[in-house]
Design a protein around this nucleic acid. Structure first.
Lengths: 209, 209
DNA sequence: ATAATTCTGGAACGATCAGTCAAGGAATCG
DNA sequence: CGATTCCTTGACTGATCGTTCCAGAATTAT
């Protein structure tokens, strides 16, 4: 049977992603991928090239299918809630039994140079994009007056990026969403709203509550 | 040549640790270990058992040689400075060209189940010990009055653990101590000292500067 | 219908994997 | 000095690794 492709590239990438995600780059064999995707050895090589090329394609697929929707949480108009929603999405994903725990990119980043330079470059670029996306939200927060302008937005963006990565690590050891929630809530307390002197939100001052 | 052992176990563990650390568990072959340690295949198996057993021994060695000195930084009397010194030690080691970047335990934790249950259990236990050590420092801080007693010490300990792990991840992608320093400084701002009402430190109040 | 095209399936490649084992040599003990 | 004990050595095993390749079948174009 042949003459026309028997599979959709997206489906194959979906399944290959699941395998790489669950077992890691090194530990995943071509045989694993063949069995998981259902396509043949020859087709796999003809379509994607060697293992590293396939993995690069999987990484792109991951960032598109998994990373992009998470970053989309940052579109939430309220900047602080945007960050919170990003964290919530990370926790949700880490707790979703339908997918492996942790982040494929984070896992790969720590899997040492074994993966190859091109892979590590792509992952570093991805982390950079996340930091930039967070940074833009923070700047927005500073201009709209919900974040203290004196706080260094770049440092803060790096910090939130670090916390997000830490979540992925901690979750690998302790598969407990409550722990992640603790970490997130604590981490958000670095967020300082401007002094309430020229505050615009409510005319009345005095103790809230 | 033989009859008596030709090598010191500690030396072998040192070198095996370096290889595992640099390349990861899966990517390290027995052949790599033989070449790095200088001892023979048979001796290696006779002394340490199989690859997983050897790695478990390496992990113990790592926690003793690397982890313990870092946790010792927490003995600093001033609790807040104790945490800061732990972070400083992490940054220092991540920037020391003499050793691979990142943390062997963290790397392994993310290398997926490929390593085996016993390994993952040991790493989870290690993370738990770190959290506990941090927790004790925070409790000490609350009793000596340098940390707001209302802050949940357990959550805070988990948080600092998460930040520490995040450092190891971020450093893999961006080998820049300044970035890690940014993250640490920002993360410390969650530390809230008690209200200065019944303050004991200085009798005089008024603006410090 | 015939030719050209394209994908599939599986055999096969050399290399490398983790792990085993028997032979041999040096130190120790009597 | 002889027997014993222990370690070292390197060849070896079967399995699996990533990768290549080709014959065959099904589709498309002519």
């Amino acid at each position: 049977m042949s003459g026309v492709k028997q599979f959709k590239t997206g489906d194959v990438l979906d399944r290959a992603m699941a395998v790489f995600w669950r077992r890691g780059y090194q530990a995943t064999s071509i045989q694993d991928l063949i069995e998981a995707t259902g396509i043949n050895r020859g087709s796999l090589y003809a379509t994607f090239g060697d293992k590293q090329r396939l993995f690069l394609a999987v990484l792109d697929h991951y960032m598109e299918q998994v990373g992009k929707p998470m970053l989309a949480e940052l579109n939430e108009p309220n900047p602080r809630r945007a960050i919170e929603r990003l964290f919530a999405a990370i926790i949700r994903r880490n707790s979703d039994p339908a997918w492996p725990r942790g982040c494929l990119a984070t896992n790969t980043a720590l899997e040492c140079p074994g993966a190859g330079d091109e892979i590590n470059r792509k992952i570093a670029a991805n982390l950079g994009q996340i930091e930039s996306a967070i940074y833009r939200v923070l700047r927005r927060a500073q201009t709209d007056g919900s974040l203290e302008p004196n706080q260094d937005a770049r440092s803060l963006a790096r910090y939130f990026l670090g916390v997000a990565q830490g979540l992925n690590v901690v979750n690998k050891a302790f598969a407990d969403p409550a722990i992640l929630q603790d970490i997130v809530e604590t981490s958000m307390s670095v967020w300082k709203a401007p002094q309430a002197e020229g505050v615009k939100r409510t005319a009345r001052s005095g103790p809230t509550v």
